[in-house]
Structure formats: C-alpha cells, structure tokens
Design a protein around this nucleic acid. Structure first.
Lengths: 350, 350
DNA sequence: TTGAAAGCGGTACCAA
DNA sequence: TTGGTACCGCTTTCAA
C-alpha cells in the first residue's frame, strides 16, 4: 500500500504529506497546484488530486509568498472609517481586488493620525503588494510617505493632500467645482442670499469649497458676507449645526438658501428651519454635500453634491493593480468631478 | 572595515544583510528583533540597532509567519457590506484587533453567497489566526462551516443562523424582543391598529420580527390582520416601500402606526404618509429598525430600535482573540438585546 | 514525465 | 554573550 491514509486530524497537511501519500515528489505536487499539468501522466494527476482532496490539503500562501515575494494582498489605510462614505469605496476596492485574486489588509487611523507612519511600517512588514491610502483631506504630516524606501510597494493616494507630488498616483475630488455647481444652481433659481455652513477647518475640502462658494458669488456679482458663513463642522455635535442654522435664519436679510457642510449638517439645518416655521424649499432652499443614500428619504428629498467615492475607490484599485502588474509608467493625478444632484429641497427663491 | 555600507537601494534588506553589516550572526539580530537583549553586550545591541536603522531594515512577517505558524491576522467575512450598519462593526473590530497587534484581512460576499466556501478556503490558505463571520441573517447553506478541518482557526459567527450549534462562538441579536419592545411602546401610546412593513423573506431576522409583532399583538389582545402586513423588503427599490405604505394608508380601519423593516423603509414610509397629508406622529406614528445615525436628522426624528452592531463586533473580536490566545473553553452563544430608542415619530394614537 | 535540492527570510535549539 | 544550523512549506532550476 502506498498510503497509510492517516488524515492527520490535528495538524494541517503540507505539500510533503501529499507527495508522500500520493507516492510522488513535492515538485510534481507543486506542478499540479500551479496548473502545470500539460505534460503529466493522467493517472499521476488524478492520484494527486484525490490525495489533496482526501487530506483536505490547502497550500500555504505564507510559504508561497516567502519564495515568490508576493502576498497577493493590498493594504488599505482608511481614516475616519466612521463615515459610511469611504466605506463604500472599501467595498468596491475589495471587489476589484478579489477579482484580480488579491485580498485586502485593512488598517484604520481613526484614533491617532500620528500612527500613520507606524501603520505603513506594519503593512511593509507584512509585505503587501500595494497600498491604497484613503483618507480625509486633513492637512497632516506626510513626511513618512517621502521616506518610503525604493523597495516599498506602489502607493495610491485618495483624497490626500500632500505637498510633494510626482511620486505616487493620486485620486482627488474636485470639491471646488462641486460647490461652484451648487452656486450656479441656486443663482439660476433666483437666489441672491446664499449661506454656507462650513466644515471642519483642518480639512482641505472645507477650504476648497469655501473658495468655490466665493468664486460662485463673484461670478454672479454677489457680495461675500461674513455673517452668511457659519460653522457646520460635522465632527462636532449636531446641536452646533442647529445653532448655526438658527443664527443664519436671524441674519438680515435672511438667506434664501443654505448649503450644508455635508448631508448630515444639511439635514439638521432643514429640520431646524422647518421647526422654525419655514417651508423647504418655498421659503428657504437647503443643499447638502456627499449625496448619501438618506438624501432620498428626507422630506423634502435633499438636493446634494455627489462625491464620487465609489468611482475613486475603483480607480485607485485599478491604478494600483496595474502598477503592481508593471504596466503604466507615468504617475497619474486624477481629479474626479463632483456633480450636483438636484432634488426637492432646492427651489426657486421666494 | 566590517561593512561595505551599500544600502541596496533596490532590494529590501534581510536579516542576513543586517547581520553581515553589523558583523554578528543572524541569531543575534533575531534576538534584538524579539527583545531578547538582557544578556547582550551594550555595544553589540547598539551596533545592530544602528545597522537596522541604516539599512532601513524591516523584518519580514511572512518569513516569521512561516516558522511561527501565526500570521497575526484575523479574517473578517462580511456580507452586505453596502449597509453602513455592519461596517461600523468592522471599524471596532479593526481597532480591537490592532490593539492586540492583529490585522484584518477583509473579505466580502456581497455578490454571490455561494462564494462563501471559497472565501473561507482562501482565508485558510492565507493562514489567518481566526475568522469573524459577520453576515446578514440570511438562510443559506453553511455546510462548509461544518466541513472545516480541526486544524482550522477559531471562528466567531455574528448574526449568522446555522442549524448546527456547539462548534463556534456566536453573537446574535434579539430581533424578536426588539420588536416586542416596539409593540409595547406603541400599545402604551394607545395604538390598536399597528402595521408592519416586512423585510426580505429570506432573512431570519424578518421572521423573528414578525414573531415579535404577532406576540406583541397577542400579549395585548389585539387581532392579527393580514392586510396590516405588507412588504418592505429593503433590498428592493424604495418605490415598493412607498406603494406598500400607500396600501396600508388605504386599509380600513387605517393603521395608526407603521413599523418599517428598517430605518430606510420607515423614512420612506414617513415621507409617503406626510405627502399624503397625514401628520407624524399626530395622525400616524412611524417606527424604524436599526437606529442609524440619520434617524436624528429626519423631521420628525425617527423612533427606532437599536441593533447593537458595534457591541457585537467588539464582543466577537474579543471572543476570537481570547480563543486564539487559548483562554476560554466553553462555546459561547451570545444574544444581544435590541433596545427601543424613542424619538419624535411615535406619539399617542389619534 | 518526474525528482533532487537549493533557497526564500526568518526562529529556535544547542553549542561554544 | 554569541554563533551554527536545521527547519517552516513552498517554488524553481536543473538533471535524469
């Protein structure tokens, strides 16, 4: 008898076990594992396959990775994972990766932005084949990115503002023109008094949007008014947003439209003005940013600006995979458009 | 000169490189990597540390994993990743894992539930130290779980209904009593005509909630009426939910309260009844399920039932880590309570 | 058509 | 206090 048929209940079977049980060499087993079966005797192949089945053998990717120097794993660093927004991207990144037979190693930096260097280190130690760096557009130190050794895997930066360009592929959002589109939309509806609830100050997107707001005003010959701009910092408590909204409602002349820092802020603003006796959009228009699913569920449905996070995730994943595969030479700096999604909460000015 | 100081710009440094450059053996380098430095000459230590720094050396976890048979990685399988709900859990799982020096290998089964066996296989090949299986409560084949070899790492099932108990730790939600709490709440407010928009039929949670609904009726001596129960299948288009809501509004006697299959369904129901000229909650109360963040942003704010996904994720992560560490012997079957979160959308019956 | 053996980058035992 | 070396499980050349 060739094999003792001892399924080794406790330890997992190795390629050697299979070879032994099937009465062949490890090389031969390795060949069938890797599909090199053209020049193989039919019954050898069968015997090996059966043995694999019988021993419930699963090749160790760890061992394989050690020799091939590839882990078939992509590191994804995500900050602000609380926001469902970027998590949608994660979903699609994973799907694309999986179709290319890659897995996702997830790391978050929700707590301390300072950890970032350390997290990168760990990903390097685990020898991921590539890294997608998906983050809030917060201004932060990114020196550690520059310090990456040449042997480091390719990196794609999504929504990441860094002072140094040129080394990594990037995918960004056109926050400025997204806001400009909102301004055009509102002005077209006859609005002349447009307010803006501002996002967190430490984010690049907040400033880009404020620029879009100002440019929109300028383009339509409308004055910029300090008291039309209040904090809608969405990392704060929603009561702050409510306060800011109430403050806006009491400014004279009263704004006929409010643009929230994001959909949540806008939703609270809508609630607030409604409870103050104003009708949306007849008395006042409300516009959000991000275009999250719940915009459709509000009453009235919230007009918003779509942030193409899903597209960004897909693009990043594909960029990374292509770079890993060795295609592509030039560094790409993609800027994705943010398009307006008009719904019921924005209407003609009173 | 001991070292040639050639930082090998293209290939990553290995332990051998460090040993050579520092003029010591690999054993010694390994010792410093693993903190076994008590009995080490001060200057040897220093020399090695400097060399590590200079060569930008990072130990390969892959090689280490091969010998230690541990990857410091947890596999997390998530289905229905679109729902922000479970992603919140992911966030917390990752954090707990990271604090224990584990990483998360993410796999989703959004597309084909049949892939599940294959995904498990891949995680086994990558030799994760443990698996968290976080899924919708869909009824599906789970034989492959039973087929897992004894050498497979520990698994924790979250919100997963399986016929066979006993082998894996589990964390589930008490959907039934969550619904019962809603019923009590509404009856207490004077409601006698309570409708329910039902979730997808293939989910265990849908049936558990329906049971809770029926038990609630029975407990308060209210009759079960077929036409008070319509589809609110949240995997369908929201227009279906709207239709179902309108149908309910036209039933005689008209329900004074509607419980949605989840918050999204409830939000659409609320919109729908409001647009039909009914006031919430004066004319009709609306209750959701899941207690997502946007409940607070609706007008009126949506009463809902909290699904403790975050707690479930944390519990699952801790259970898994403890089992990996070898503590704990008995299999746990945790059932987490779903508590009612009353807000503005539920009020006294008209 | 199949096999022997070196080696991937570490760990850990045993010696020195 | 430090070093030699077998080995983890697989791939890959080269030879048979």
């Amino acid at each position: 008898m060739v094999s003792q048929t001892r399924p080794k209940s406790t330890k997992r079977a190795t390629i050697k076990d299979v070879a032994q049980a099937a009465g062949v060499s490890v090389t031969t087993v390795s060949n069938v594992l890797n599909g090199r079966t053209e020049a193989m005797a039919e019954d050898t192949l069968q015997r090996i396959q059966q043995t694999i089945q019988r021993l419930n053998y699963r090749p160790s990717r760890v061992a394989r990775s050690l020799v091939t120097q590839q882990t078939a794993t992509l590191g994804v660093i995500i900050s602000e994972i609380d926001t469902p927004l970027f998590l949608q991207a994660l979903n699609h990144i994973e799907t694309i990766a999986r179709h290319a037979e890659y897995h996702i190693l997830l790391a978050t930096t929700a707590e301390h932005l300072d950890d970032e260097a350390q997290i990168i280190d760990l990903l390097l130690e685990k020898q991921v084949d590539g890294i997608i760096y998906l983050s809030t557009s917060v201004y932060a130190k990114t020196d550690f990115l520059e310090d990456l050794p040449p042997s480091a895997p390719p990196v794609v930066l999504v929504n990441r503002i860094t002072p140094f360009a040129g080394r990594f592929d990037r995918v960004n959002f056109d926050h400025l023109n997204g806001m400009a589109a909102v301004m055009d939309h509102l002005v077209q509806l006859g609005h002349r008094h447009i307010a803006h609830l501002l996002g967190p100050k430490d984010r690049a997107s907040t400033h880009e949007r404020l620029n879009g707001y100002r440019q929109g005003l300028a383009r339509h010959n409308l004055p910029y008014r300090d008291n039309y701009v209040k904090s809608g910092d969405f990392e704060q408590d929603w009561r702050l947003w409510q306060e800011s909204t109430l403050a806006l409602v009491n400014v004279s002349p009263r704004p006929t439209a409010i643009i929230g820092a994001n959909d949540r802020v806008a939703a609270v603003a809508m609630r607030t003005v409604q409870n103050a006796g104003l009708r949306v959009p007849q008395d006042i228009s409300i516009v959000g940013i991000d275009n999250q699913a719940f915009c459709n569920y509000l009453n009235p449905a919230l007009t918003s600006v779509k942030l193409p996070v899903v597209e960004a995730g897909k693009l990043a994943a594909n960029l990374l995979l292509e770079r890993i595969a060795g295609h592509r030479r030039e560094i790409e700096n993609n800027v994705l458009p943010c398009v307006l999604v008009p719904r019921e909460s924005s209407g003609v000015a009173p």
